[in-house]
Amino acid sequence: MNTHCLYCDARIEAELSWAGLFGFCGVQAGAAFCADCRGRLAPIGAVGCTLCGRPADAERAEGGRCRDCVRWERAPSGGEKRVQNRSLYRYNGFMQEVLAQYKYRGDAALAEVFAPELARLGRSFARGYTAVPVPLAPDRLLERGFNQAALLAAGLRPREDLLVRTGTTAGKQSKRGRNARLASVAGCFAAKAQAPGEETVSWGELKIVLVDDLYTTGATLQSIGEVFYQKGVKDVRALTLARAGDVADIDS
């Protein structure tokens, strides 16, 4: 058991509780945040948009869809089927710092906190789906040393062999605006029909849940979704750690 917070390294005090007294809980599974850090995370309770998983209080939606999703559906370039997304937390200031420490400063252990939580969400939101983490470009993987999405998907028995990154988006998504993002990801991914040493995947029987760290516009996930849909996959969903897109979140 970790006795220190994985993010701020403060000592975690054993919480007194009746459940703990009677022995049914107590040890947090493996890694943990201290109560302070945990308190600064903003879990998404109810979703306001059933499609992209935007938090309920963000903006008023029409028929359970947020304005973004409606716009997407009306756009001529929009694909026929959408990727439904659910996220664990809002992308608030604190989550921004956590992700920065995780991805850019290489604190891969942070995934141990979130992987079980994503797995739990996956069991309710995408039961029976095959988890596919969004792959990194090889040079980025080399630079970072790990795929942040694969580590987050650890609890979902991910298959990294079904999807490859064929093209690179020059530079990071985080540095682009909405339209640039949408344009940049087109044609970057390809589905792999056969992994070495395994039998051919019959796409038609498959349901896939994509795993990634952050959902902003959904461009990446949507373009991957289209790749899979074209292969005949029945349904593609997405699980992400954080849901961005609300200015209010960043400010808080």
């Binding site: 703990g20 007294l21 009677f22 022995g23 809980c25 107590g26 040890v27």
Partner: peptide, 8 residues
């Protein structure tokens, strides 16, 4: 109860 509390 004291036994159970040792379980963790």
């Amino acid at each position: 109860v004291s036994g159970l509390a040792f379980v963790p």
